[in-house]
Design a protein around this nucleic acid. Structure first.
Ligand SMILES: [Mn+2]
Ligand SMILES: [Mn+2]
Length: 600
DNA sequence: TACAACCGAG
DNA sequence: TTCACACGGTCGT
DNA sequence: GACCGTGTGTCTCTCGGTTGTACG
């Protein structure tokens, strides 16, 4: 009897046995490839286009050797390959494979491509010999350039005398990968690392009714974002101000996915969030069918607007930069606008933006900026406003120590050793400890299978982990778990048992390579449960941003207690994210200090 | 010749 | 789903 | 002191082979 699809998926999730590299079965990569194609077909047959469906079906009709050859090459850089350089132990007859793939439309043998693609297939020495340039002292880049300038494409092609192949259908494969992973950045190495025992994944439920992409348009939106993002990166690297501004105004803004209506909806939605009673909120979310959200698309567009605008700032195109920042809903767009407006002399508009931020800050850092910058503005221009909180003097605890500088050793490590010499235990954990404790304590809540947040077997967390919706959708569970922290031993037991049970299973918040049972036990016995609870709550406020900025060291003095220590070498100051945490530590009376190092 | 950068394989 | 952090330079106060 | 740009280490691991370049 054939294994059910669920069973196949279950096998694909686990790697029960830690296998050595040589244990991977011959042709493992083809199994992974077909697993992904089949998985996507099971979930998304109605979203795939005819060409994409045919890509899978026809591929699987090929001989095993041809399939293997295709997968081998399609997962390499390419895009073209020299036939004479293709050698794989498990593919005996490469030529037969190539012929089959060409016949079926999966390989292209023609060389109707730009000359530099062909040249890149040769080594430098080969080119020097072929083009009789042996005496020349040129860097590789210059050599290619010189050859292209001096020879026609046809001449180059005939001189090289190489057979090439180029895998086709990459655009379809991209669709399959995107549908499977939900992003454009993961690839087949996920499977290999898992099968080698290097990563393991939680056993959450996925099923077709909870898929990530609900329809073709949501898929196209993400795909298109990827294309635009690449174009952005390219333009920022090489474009002039006019090109960048045009791209921002035309490509991004007139895009149907980011119409004014959509933006208006997003803003309205945000307001609703604030107004809705919490119970109503919960009900609403239970009923919502989750899918690729417009919020996520808007986030990606905003990131692009921000980076384009930042580049315009560098190019001194202030007006254009302002226009693009206005399109962005993500920090630091409003901050940059406030700065630019002030620089242009439009103090009133700048202050108005600060007021907007104070009224509805997107992040803690944004709020801190608005308060500080706003106060500076009114001081300089002698204005009076009612909405601006006063800047609180920062009186964080500073200590000074003198150390001998040691080459190739981080100052953090030196200070860590210094604390150990003083009889304390100390660990250089930075953002590794507190988020790990959080991830362990809330493990089962993080991995609770809310519809649509888990959709493939290799996720490190729910898709909404770093969105504001994370805590809203799990509000009751989180609040209950927070309440239980004060129960005798509950927190430590929960964290330690989760550590043992889940050891090594991938979780965005848990740094397995940093923590060990000894550090956990010491942390749990020394850090008061109420302090920990407050830090968890602070993390929850904004999981995406508050994950960072935690102090370098955690120090456990000989007798009792603990101290969070941020190390600062001469010339180094607290970063904004670090300031946010220190402000919080001060408010909660959590023992945290800054150690300023003097070089002896 | 030594070394670094890059890439592929498992 | 590249980013978090440190470091050194410039500019204005 | 505020702010900016850049370098570094790291990412989901570790190894070995190839290629290009700097330098003697
Ligand atoms: Mn640090
Ligand atoms: Mn530090």
């Amino acid at each position: 009897m054939q294994a059910s699809y669920a069973e196949v998926v279950a096998v694909y999730r686990y790697s029960y046995h830690r296998r050595m590299a040589e244990d991977l079965p011959i042709g493992y990569y083809l199994k992974n490839f077909n697993f992904l194609l089949d998985f996507v077909f099971q979930y998304y047959d109605d979203v795939l286009l005819a060409d994409e469906l045919a890509y899978r079906v026809n591929f699987q009709k090929l001989s095993v050797a041809a399939q293997r050859l295709y997968v081998r090459l399609s997962s390499r850089r390419g895009p073209m390959f020299r036939v004479e350089k293709i050698h794989y132990a498990e593919i005996i007859d490469v030529e037969a494979g190539i012929n089959e793939l060409v016949e079926q439309g999966y390989f292209d043998q023609s060389q109707e491509v730009a000359a530099d693609w062909l040249l890149s297939l040769m080594t430098k020495n080969e080119l020097l010999e072929l083009f009789d340039l042996s005496g020349q002292q040129m860097r590789r880049e210059e050599l290619d350039q010189a050859i292209i300038e001096q020879h026609s494409a046809a001449q180059i092609k005939s001189l090289l005398e190489i057979d090439t192949v180029m895998p086709l259908g990459e655009e379809h494969l991209k669709i399959y990968k995107l549908l499977f992973f939900g992003n454009l950045s993961q690839d087949f190495t996920e499977f290999v690392l898992r099968d080698l025992g290097l990563s393991r994944f939680e056993n959450y439920l996925t099923d077709r009714s909870a898929r990530y992409f609900d329809d073709r348009p949501s898929l196209e939106k993400v795909l298109h974002c990827g294309v635009l993002n690449e174009a952005c990166q390219h333009l920022i690297a090489v474009g002039d101000a006019q090109q960048i501004a045009d791209f921002g105004q035309v490509q991004l803004t007139t895009e149907k996915f980011l119409s004014a209506d959509l933006l208006a909806d997003a803003i309205l939605h945000k307001e609703l969030h604030k107004e809705l009673h919490q119970e109503l909120h919960k009900e609403l979310h239970k009923e919502l069918h989750l899918e690729v959200s417009d919020a996520e698309i808007i986030r990606r567009y905003s990131k692009m607007f921000n980076s384009l605008a930042r580049q315009l700032e560098r190019l001194d195109s202030t007006t254009q930069a302002l226009r693009l920042y206005e399109q962005s809903t993500l920090p630091p767009a409003r901050e940059r606008r406030a700065r630019l407006l002030a620089k242009c002399g439009d103090v009133q508009s700048s202050l108005a933006l600060c007021a907007e931020i104070v009224a509805l800050p997107a992040t803690e850092a944004e709020l801190a900026f608005a308060i500080q910058f706003g106060n500076r503005l009114i001081a300089r221009h002698k204005c009076v406003v009612s909405w601006l909180p006063v800047v609180l003097a920062e009186n964080f605890q500073h200590d000074e120590i003198s150390l001998h500088k040691v080459n190739d050793v981080n100052v953090e490590i030196l200070v860590c050793e210094w604390f150990k010499q003083q009889g304390s235990d100390a660990y250089y954990v930075e953002n590794g400890l507190i988020p790990s404790l959080f991830g362990l304590y809330f493990w089962d809540i993080i991995f609770i299978p809310i519809k649509g947040v888990f959709f493939n077997p290799v996720q490190r967390g729910p898709i909404d982990l770093f969105t504001a919706d994370f805590k809203v959708r799990r509000q009751a569970l989180i609040e209950d778990r927070l309440l239980r922290m004060t129960e005798e031993n509950y927190t430590a037991n929960k964290i330690l048992s989760t550590y043992r049970q889940k050891l090594g299973i991938a979780n965005y918040l848990v740094s397995w390579n940093l923590i060990d049972i000894q550090l956990l036990k010491q942390s749990l016995s020394r850090i008061g449960v109420n302090d920990l609870k407050q830090m968890f709550i602070h993390l929850l406020q904004d999981l995406r941003h508050n994950r960072s900025g935690l102090p370098d060291l955690v120090v456990f003095p000989p007798q009792a207690g603990y101290q969070l220590v941020e190390v600062k070498a001469p010339g180094d100051r607290l970063q904004n994210s670090q300031k946010c945490w220190f402000k919080f530590f001060t408010g909660q009376q959590i023992p945290a200090s800054i150690v300023n190092v003097r070089w002896q």
